[in-house]
């Protein structure tokens, strides 16, 4: 009886798991697919490690849920009032209590070690080859390239009415940010107004952009392609309408693009680097 029960529970769970895990390759890189039940495929070493870590987490999560469910199903069948008219009076079992304190603790340590390794790996890169500065605005992004002459440009959403065929709604911008693949890129993020958050799921990058400070992270994009993200901190009425579109190209193509961009964006003003204010500057007129 119990075996059948376990089967009824485990088979669909395993099927769903394999569906989710297996279908990663089927999806195009860079953005979500309809009815997606899993992460977007990893496009950076950081995201690869996140996915690996998540596999560990998911196995533990599902095991715990299935375990609890199985015990509950057994209880429901074995200890309902009809099946068990006389309740026991057991209220203690020291061994059991030690086990169910110690085993979870052990599982947590198994989680914590790779977790902290991942955290430190994702934090900063030691040997960046270039820097991209990102400034959040209501409601668009501004990108500047301090290592390539300091040019900058705004990246604004293309409204639905002006989309060309094949361009994804709410993800298309006029000027995507172009970056070289297989390059260690330092990201410096700040904001010109409220808090925004620059995120690209396929990269495993997500970091707040806060006025008055510069937050740093890094990315190394494995392969050329188009990668999308969305602002990830509520920033006002058009929070849903300031997407991120990264175009990763080869190093050679990137150099060509830089030359062109310098000309195209020559007259775009670089946003003032977020200044750490002189405290006690004269009060802002209200």
């Amino acid at each position: 009886m119990l075996r059948i029960l376990k089967l009824i529970v485990l088979v669909p769970v395993l099927a769903a798991l394999s569906l989710m895990l297996g279908t990663g390759d089927v999806f195009a890189a860079g953005r979500a697919e309809p009815w997606q039940m899993w992460f977007q495929p990893a496009a950076t070493p950081v995201m690869e490690r996140i996915l690996e870590f998540h596999n560990l987490l998911l196995i533990i999560e599902v095991s715990i849920v299935v375990f609890v469910l199985a015990i509950m199903c057994y209880i429901i069948f074995r200890f309902n009032a009809k099946s068990n008219p006389v309740p026991s009076k057991t209220t203690h079992n020291t061994l059991l209590e030690v086990i169910w304190t110690g085993v979870p603790l052990f599982i947590l340590i198994i989680i914590a070690i790779p977790s902290l390794k991942l955290l430190y790996y994702a934090d900063k890169v030691q040997d960046a080859e270039m820097t991209l500065k990102v400034t959040g605005n209501q409601w668009y992004w501004n990108y500047s390239y301090p290592d390539h002459g300091g040019f900058a440009f705004d990246s604004i959403i293309v409204p639905n009415a002006e989309l060309k065929k094949g361009q994804p709604r709410l993800l298309t911008v006029d000027n995507p940010v172009v970056l070289p693949a297989r390059t260690n890129i330092r990201l410096l993020l700040t904001s010109a107004d409220v808090i925004h958050n620059w995120a690209v799921p396929a990269f495993g990058v997500k970091l707040d952009t806060v006025g008055g400070r510069i937050n740093e992270t890094w990315v190394n994009i494995n392969k050329e392609g188009d990668y999308y993200g969305m602002c990830s901190e509520l920033c006002g009425v058009n929070h849903a309408f300031m997407p991120i579109h990264v175009k990763a190209v080869s190093k050679a193509d990137f150099a060509i693009w830089v030359k062109k961009a310098k000309k195209d964006f020559a007259d775009v003003e670089v946003p003032a680097a977020a200044k750490l204010a002189q405290a006690d500057a004269p009060a802002v007129a209200r």
Binding site: L276, Q278, D280
Partner: peptide, 13 residues
Amino acid sequence: SLVAPESWPPKGV
């Protein structure tokens, strides 16, 4: 804090 001023009180206070 990343934004605490370099001196306290801040310059000019």
